[in-house]
Structure formats: C-alpha cells, structure tokens
Design a protein around this nucleic acid. Structure first.
Length: 441
RNA sequence: GUGGCUGUAGCUCAGUUGGUUAGAGCACCGGGUUGUGAUCCCGGGGGUCGCGGGUUCGAGUCCCGUCAGCCACCCCA
C-alpha cells in the first residue's frame, strides 16, 4: 500500500549512503588506530541511560538539551546519551577495584543533543572519547594530548592547520586570587572568562566590575587571556612569571617538556583564555582549533579528578577529551585534506578483487555463481555484474567502474579469462585455477 | 526558544511582465548484430515544482501559512 506522504529524516540527523559512511569511517578508523597504538582499549555503553545519570553532573537545566523519554506505561525516565563521560564514570566506578591503574579507554559512539542544528553542530554525531583513569601525572596529560594530535597527523593535518590551546584551571584561579577574588567567587568568574571573545571588551570590563574587579585589573586579565603563544616564546615566559608563578608555571614547564618528548609540542600553544564552561574540570584543560580560528572547536578536554567520586567510585584522578566528527570533517574539507571517495574506498580495503561475468553462452552463464562462491570462500571480494547486456566491452566498463582489480570472464565449463584491469594484461586459466590464481596476487 | 536566507529530477541548475503536455547537463538503465574498459552516437525511466490554502479565466512564477535545509543568536557536556 502506497503511503500518501513522504518521510524525512529527523532534524539534525544524517543519512549515510555508502560514500558518506566511507567518509565517516575514514575518520573513525584513524581515531581507532591511533587509540590502539597509544595503548587504549575500546569500550562502549548503552545508547540511552537513566535521565538521572545526566542531571547528577549537570543539573536539571540539562534536560532541555536532551532527548528524554519514558516507555509507554513505564515509570522510569531515560535519555539518549548526550556525552560519554557519565557512562564512563559509571562503568569505571562499578569495577574500579578490579581495573588496572592506569586504565586507558576509548570509544567512538554516536551522541544525541536536542539543539538547533547549525554549521559544525548536529543533533546526532559521532564522537571519539579517550580517557586515562587512575593516573594523576603530568605525563598522562601529555600522552592524552599527544594521542589527539597523532590522530590529526594521521588524517594529514599539520601544526599549520590546527593548534592545541592549553590552559590550567589552577593557573586561572591563581590569577583571580592574585587580583583579590575570593575562591568562593571563582565559579562566577569562570562563567565570565568563558565569554571572552564572544562579548566586547567593554562588556567584559563592566561585568568584571560588577563582580568586584576594578577596570585596570580587568584590562590586564583580558590581555593575558588573549595571549596565545608557543611555550618557549619569551612573552609566554614573562606572562607565566608575572601571572602564575610557582606550581602552575612549573606544571606547564613539565607538560611542555613531556609534549616535546612525544613530538607534539609543535602543535601546542599556551592560552590561559581556555577555561571551558564545565564545572568539573580540576586541572589542565585544552581545546583544539583550526589555526585561523575557522569552524568550532575540533576537540576539547582536560583533567577531572573529582568526577569518578561524584558517580560513586573511589577517588580517581582522570583526564580525557572528546573529538566530534562534524567539525573535524569540515576542517579536513576546508583544507582540501578529505581524500576522494575512490581513495577512501582503497584505504578501507573495499575494492573488489574480481568482477565476474560470462561470455554469454548458457554453459558459462551457469558457472558464474560457482566461480563467485569459490572466490568468496577464499576470502576474496568477488562481485557479479548486474548488467543484462552481453556486450563484453560494457561489462568490462562496469568492472572498471566498480574499481575491481580483475575481471574474470567465464568462457566455458573448463576455461576462464582473467584480465588485470590496471595493466590490461589478460590470460586464460583452467576454471578451477581461478581462485588460487587470484589469491596469489 | 529567537532571527535571516533558501526550497524545480538522485546531484548542479534553467524556466520570459503569470499563459499549452516543466527543460538541460551529470548520474542511472538499455541499444550501437556475432568478445575487450574511462571517448562517442541513439534511446529510456525518473518531477504531486517541499506541503497546504488564497488571488486569477489560468500559478513553478504573486500573497499567506506551514515544513525542511543552511547560517547566526541562546547554549555548547
């Protein structure tokens, strides 16, 4: 029965046709390989959780940003996962005593947020999460950042394309304390600091004045937060000496030394303007941006040493980041670094090994399925042309379009022609020899 | 939740001051008589002009509403 209306995909979601899914896989496979070689184990959790899991950390205000629901007749309220950290914390807390220290986990699932879609932001997206739990060392911070950097390098990006902007909650708090802001009011200031760049300088100075900071200090604070420089730069050193002497400055020294050893320091800059709106970060925080400031943040993360406790686990230091597919793909496209569909298919190992068709005689026609089955049992990617034509030229064209390595033309019940579509060379082989012949290549 | 811009074939787009059965390129399917691939020639399928209402003798075209997409704001885990 034909429907009297058409259906559309829900707002902010995407249909992934083969080439679309291949492009997504190109990115997620880079994430996966990078994670694995950096010693992370892949995990996953439910696509939906109890709503409470998200309100614990973020408050009731988060509910409007979630897709939440109840079963018909049910009493529990669920929500599609908007992020992974609560699930991660729950999973870690449940087995904390049995897990190695440190534990390194990653995942690349999809997430759901009930926001109005816009450039770089959709309602369903894929996000890579990497976390190191049970390790409070500066080396762990550096390894985590280096892992993110290496994934970008694997996708063809370089320090000219993207920059990791690194800050530290403790350093920013020290700047505030130095200006006479009591610790109880730091949270208010973080909210304000997060708006720098979005509101005018005058608006910032006015807002700071209302929070009790006089204009000259607010101006200096703005200047410090705007500074985005290499760690070795003299201006960086002067800033650290003046603004965050002692422990924070020493932390940055150790972090950048560790990043340097991991060959990642070229990608990194110090920017105390990165505060991130989230309340749960306790130490280093970072964001990865396109170098010219185009697009939204590619990735964000930091240290959250209190969060596992909040979800019922033992006190556990942790550091992690998330990187979404939407912005990253836009940056790759902007920079001309997204390979062609054919290149991606090659890299993902999707090229057919053989396209099989017959010379048009009834006995050859009957053998085509058998040859295909024999090749497939050998683990070869064998396709049959769906063309109804007997025109061998057309069939070869079809094989070339499918980017098959070889065309196999069944000639009789004893003989087949194998044509190498790259070189154009061809030879006749006994039909039983086709699978081993192709397998050798 | 607020605002701006845009909706014609799978894709990119034509379509005259409102006027006959809405077109092109690409893509897709087939043919080019006895078997060799990216060119070429011929043919074919595919569109409730996003949807609904209004004005009009007549609407793809004008008006209103609505839905969707894009972009920005809010927010951004």
């Amino acid at each position: 029965m034909a429907s009297d209306h058409t259906f559309q995909a829900p707002t902010g979601t995407r249909d992934f046709y083969p080439t679309d899914l291949n492009r997504l896989r190109y990115v997620t496979e880079a994430w996966r390989r990078t994670s694995i070689v950096h010693g992370f184990d892949q995990i996953d959790g439910p696509t939906f959780e109890h709503l409470d899991l998200y309100t614990v950390k973020s408050g009731e205000g988060i509910v409007s940003e979630l897709f939440s629901f109840e079963r018909a007749g049910g009493e529990k309220t669920y929500a599609l996962r908007p992020e992974f950290t609560p699930t991660l914390a729950r999973m870690y807390a449940a087995r904390a005593n049995a897990l190695p220290r440190p534990t390194r986990w990653f995942c690349t699932p999809s997430f759901f947020r009930a926001e109005r879609p816009q450039r770089g932001r959709l309602r369903e997206f894929t996000q890579w999460n990497c976390d190191i739990l049970g390790d409070d060392s500066v080396q762990a911070d550096a390894e985590l950042i280096a892992c993110a950097v290496e994934s970008l390098r694997a996708l063809g990006l370089s320090p000219e394309h993207v920059k990791v902007r690194i800050s530290h909650r403790g350093a920013v708090e020290q700047m505030l304390t130095k200006r006479g802001v009591e610790p109880e009011r730091h949270a208010e200031y973080f909210g304000l600091l997060d708006k720098v760049g979005k509101i005018s300088n005058d608006a910032f100075i006015e807002a700071a004045r209302k929070l009790g900071m006089d204009a000259p200090e607010a101006v200096k604070l703005l200047a410090t937060m705007a500074q985005t420089t290499r760690y070795e730069a003299p201006t960086t050193q002067v800033m650290l000496h003046q603004e965050t002497p002692g422990a924070p400055a020493e932390y940055f020294r150790a972090l950048f030394a560790a990043l340097d050893q991991l060959d990642a320091s070229e990608w990194c800059v110090l920017n105390l303007g990165i505060v991130r709106g989230l309340a749960y970060y306790t130490g280093m925080v970072f964001e990865i941006h396109e170098a010219n400031g185009a697009e939204r943040a590619i990735a964000g993360g930091g240290r959250y040493d209190r969060l596992i406790e909040l979800f019922g686990g033992p006190p556990t230091p942790a550091v992690g980041f998330g990187m979404g597919d939407v912005v990253l793909s836009l940056v790759l496209q902007d920079r001309g670094l997204m390979p062609t569909d054919d290149q991606i298919a090659d890299r993902l190992g999707l090229r057919p090994d053989a396209m099989i068709f017959s010379n048009g005689t009834p006995e050859a026609d009957a053998l085509v399925p058998r040859v295909a089955a024999a090749l497939r049992r050998e683990g070869l990617h064998a396709r049959r042309s769906a063309k109804s034509t007997r025109n061998v030229g057309k069939l070869l064209q079809d094989a070339a379009k499918a980017r098959a390595r070889f065309a196999v033309i069944v000639e009789s019940d004893t003989l087949a022609t194998i044509k190498d579509l790259a070189s154009g060379r061809q030879e006749q082989v006994p039909i039983g020899e086709v699978p081993p012949w192709l397998r050798r290549l």
